[in-house]
Amino acid sequence: MGGYGDIQLLRDDGLRLDGRKVDEMREVEIEAGILPAADGSAWVKHGLNIAVCAVYGPMEAHPRKIQRQDRAVIDVRYNMAPFSTSDRIRPGFNRRSREISKVTAEALESVVLVERYPRSKIRVEIEILAAEAGTRCVGLTAAAVALADAGIPMRDMIVGVAAGKIEGTVVLDLDKAEDNYGQADLPMGILPTTGEIAFLQMDGDLSVEEFNTCLEYNMKAAKEIHAIQIDALKRRYEQKMGGGV
């Protein structure tokens, strides 16, 4: 984490700079099935973040050495568009996006019923079009909706959420300033029905009590985002029925 409280992030009235309460998340909007070329897709706006995800497959896994005899492999690419941040990002994979892609794939492999598709591959393409802290979580939320839209069986949805600490106070869903100048960040991928954790990272400094509060906030937010995911899929399904696709 960046600084150590040299910038005031909590107002005197106890609210955050953007007026949110400590356990309040940014606004989330989700649309399913927005990319006609893909087998499944989703668009997620979370605060000022925008993530788009496309799913292709299940398809033949090649090269052959990546095939698994008993299950499908999930091939995730998390990528930030060059214009998604205030300084342009050079196109191409970097160490950060590779790591995020890897742990995101592993999180998705724990919810998708991969054993139904031996020797095949499911491609999950996550593109971050606008970034304002928490993009890996937004990408995960989008991936779950895109997989469901593609009709790929899962044992639960998965929701990406983060809590953290600013000025010694635990808060839900850090924005950019809070991420830059805060003291801890705990992004998680949560299975909203069972409460299991499929994605877990953290950096900064948290006491056990603070961690538990973060966990409680994340679980609460996961339920809220899950409802928005389901609503998006329902609207997509109604559209499909009505549109006769």
């Binding site: 927005i34 990319l35 006609p36 070329a37 000022l48 925008i50 568009a81 060059p82 214009f83 998604s84 941040t85 205030s86 300084d87 342009r88 079009l129 606008a130 970034a131 304002e132």
Partner: peptide, 25 residues
Amino acid sequence: CLYNAEGSAKVTWGDTIIYAGVKFE
């Protein structure tokens, strides 16, 4: 339509979808 880009556009052309973003350095 894109926060962080200095100029941006989204084109939906039939089923083709394209975003463009402008940055300066």
